[in-house]
Design a protein around this nucleic acid. Sequence first.
DNA 1: TTGAAAGCGCTAACAG
DNA 2: CTGTTAGCGCTTTCAA
Lengths: 361, 361
Amino acid sequence: MNGQNSGKSAPPKNPVAAESVGQVTMADIAAKLGISKMTVSRALNRSTRRRSDASEALRQRILDTCQDMGYVLDQTARTFSSKRSGFIATIIPALNNSNFSDTAHGLTSAVESAGMQVLMGYTDYDMATEEKLIRTMLMRRPEGIVVTGGSHTPAARKLLQSSGVPVVETWDLLNAPIGHNVGFSNAQAVRQLVLALYEKGYRRMGFLGGIPESDARGADRRQGFLTAMSELGLDTTCTVAMGNAPVSMEAGAQGLAQMMAKWPDLEAVVCVSDHVAFGALAECQRRAWPVPGKLAIAGFGDFEISRSCHPQITTVAVDSAGIGKVAGQLLLRAILAARSGESFKPETMLMPYKIELRGST
Amino acid sequence: MNGQNSGKSAPPKNPVAAESVGQVTMADIAAKLGISKMTVSRALNRSTRRRSDASEALRQRILDTCQDMGYVLDQTARTFSSKRSGFIATIIPALNNSNFSDTAHGLTSAVESAGMQVLMGYTDYDMATEEKLIRTMLMRRPEGIVVTGGSHTPAARKLLQSSGVPVVETWDLLNAPIGHNVGFSNAQAVRQLVLALYEKGYRRMGFLGGIPESDARGADRRQGFLTAMSELGLDTTCTVAMGNAPVSMEAGAQGLAQMMAKWPDLEAVVCVSDHVAFGALAECQRRAWPVPGKLAIAGFGDFEISRSCHPQITTVAVDSAGIGKVAGQLLLRAILAARSGESFKPETMLMPYKIELRGST
DNA sequence: TTGAAAGCGCTAACAG
DNA sequence: CTGTTAGCGCTTTCAA
């Protein structure tokens, strides 16, 4: 019997299985085997052992006993003691946008092999919500933070800066990132898309997106459109802003209607996202307007819909999952560096994208 | 100076602001103000106070000091001490399926007002992954668990049963739920959809879904189709199973092609989801087959796409967010009951759904 | 209303 | 390789 367990006042345990998670502690396992808590702790933490049949046998007995007694390690206690939460906090604008959820997916894949768990939150495209989320998440002491974009409230920015852990801002290419940055220039991408449409012969083009203030990334894309059109010496007045982010398919349809009422001779519409583009396409179909015969339509993001609809929609393909994966890898390196006391300079990783010209243009 | 802080060996703090989160503890706040940790703790936990200008003034000073010193409460320590993690664990099949992410959204909304945070995980439609996730999440000692559906590995089921906290299984209506159940009969829903199509005059109908083994919900829907067709005395042989869940739009298109090659005179196709239905619709458009003229198409889930495309797709509208919201409310009641030592019987909440007949049929 | 003592379950650090 | 001691930062409990 181990003395360390003598002070325990919990009710007697079922020798075979615990009634519920959290009833059995390491001390119980240790007591049962007549060893110390530390031995149990070590057996549970060192996944691979060097040679030693004796200790390997003990290790197995410990594992079996944990199994038998229904022991589930208390990560809270572990975190509290070791100062390592095993959490990576991530904040995305919305769960139901597969661009962002793919990024979260990529992040999860990248960090789970290191035993890290992703603590996910979403802002609904609201900076105040983001600030609140950051505050809440910091209370869980994440070992790294991944946020979407570079637009934050001043307080949120301050929190991130003083978080004491590596921060990655994703999706946008930033002039003054807080820490690391994994993304691309949304403006450049749309600019290239417009140039590609120009080469195809389109001249009278419009941009269909949301209210710029509500979505920094959308505003960047709009800016890229305006830049390209100016460079080409084309008319930049044909733009419509339909409500706050996220702009829906429905809004895309309505926006197209507005746009074509105002500028009936438009040849092509560049949309802030594939969702909006699809809404516009559907509206054309309702009107029996041939696409691209009467009007060409382009989107952004390479969502499943733009590949699956007919005609397929021209878009900018982004490696959403790759952004998350790279962010995760960067974070892991930064965390390991910090553990060994090394410094790790903030890095900016430029992610590739590709203009996908398809049937809609 | 407070004696409680005397043992602290941390380096001297910047009196204005901490260099990083976690550097400042409650004891520092207390020492700064010459009060005890407990007073700080109470000020931070009791959001509203009863009358007492004096204590209210102190409370404000405490809050200001926390602000000034950049104090961020350590939720890990709080959890460890109070045995309340503030976590609700939830597991969904996939992040990028808006039905499930809407459920997660509804759950989050329902529990955040109670100060609970949602710890989210996704299985990619794999039961082994689910088991692993449950195991990992239980180490964080969630106060409640929400899982999707009733199909779990035996070990996962055992873990949930012995978790010691309320469990809600969602989306499906179960014969033997582990704890609470919030959902509806997917089979019944599809059955009603088929009956509605029958009333519209359709007779030769097929079902397009994934491999039943890979998706319990999809299998239920398939079963509902078969049941309805049998009841109506119609041919039940026209079914196609396209790959594992989640079945993509692309697979929907391919499945439709297979189906029509085998049974060219089919009048209507019922699909396991709107995504599949949309893929089928797009394939028809590619072939210039009028929908519903040549073939009627129905889906499931009332995703944005089915409302926005042309023609709009007939579907089963499910209150996805409502499922999450009700699950969250149920969980909160159960948690509160448990805290006051009351028993709280497992409940089954039947959620409504609606057959949405649209242009595609 | 406030304070002091105790301790949650684990791991770091050191000793054997 | 294993054991012992100490303590993480809070909240619980009890006392004033």
